[in-house]
């Protein structure tokens, strides 16, 4: 693989790691948030943090979506390795894996396109959830959906380039050196 490819991909790794850290901190903060809510609830006559509404609408999307491309990079997405792994015909293997990656790219394009439409709708109609009589806008977290799938799309494009260039089927751009 060319140096340029590696350099650009290294930068992209950095972006995905950033996403992972956002998600990780979201879990960490959610942990404290729910515990505080429990604490306050068990102290008489106290304030509510609306943990149910806030965790489901803000924390969960923040946990799931920013880390999505990172999960793909680390080869987390399960697939059952029957033919590609077992077949002796490398050319056939390569053909199948390229087809699958292209299909994945198409699916991601659909999710990005419609996810972005949903984001526009949410801005347009002021989509919100309510906690304690206050409306909290949903568009910032809905925007995470097309952004995160775009990162996955980029990951898949890198993977496609790697497969075509290296003439060897693979589902991770950088192999895990165990």
């Amino acid at each position: 693989m060319s140096d340029n490819f590696s350099k650009i991909y290294q930068f992209f790794i950095y972006i995905k790691k950033l996403g992972m850290l956002v998600s990780g901190f979201a879990v960490f903060i959610m942990m404290f948030y729910i515990c505080l809510d429990v604490l306050f609830r068990n102290i008489e006559g106290s304030i509510s943090l609306y943990a149910y509404e806030i965790t489901s609408n803000y924390f969960m999307p923040l946990i799931v979506f920013p880390a999505m491309a990172f999960a793909f990079e680390k080869g987390m997405m399960p697939r059952i390795d029957f033919i590609i792994g077992k077949s002796k015909n490398i050319k056939f293997q390569l053909f199948v894996s390229i087809c699958l990656i292209i299909l994945e790219i198409v699916l991601m394009l659909l999710l990005i396109f419609y996810g972005f439409q949903y984001f526009l709708t949410s801005v347009d109609s002021g989509l919100a959830f309510t906690a304690g009589g206050t409306n909290y806008p949903l568009w910032p977290v809905i925007l995470l959906v097309p952004i995160s799938f775009s990162l996955v799309l980029i990951e898949m494009v890198f993977l496609l380039i790697k497969n075509i260039a290296s003439k060897k089927p693979s589902f991770v751009v950088i192999e895990d050196k165990k």
Partner: peptide, 17 residues
Amino acid sequence: RAHEIFVQELGSSSVSM
């Protein structure tokens, strides 16, 4: 929301889940 206000006005805590 209406029941949340009512419960708070009673002097109790409103919990949503």
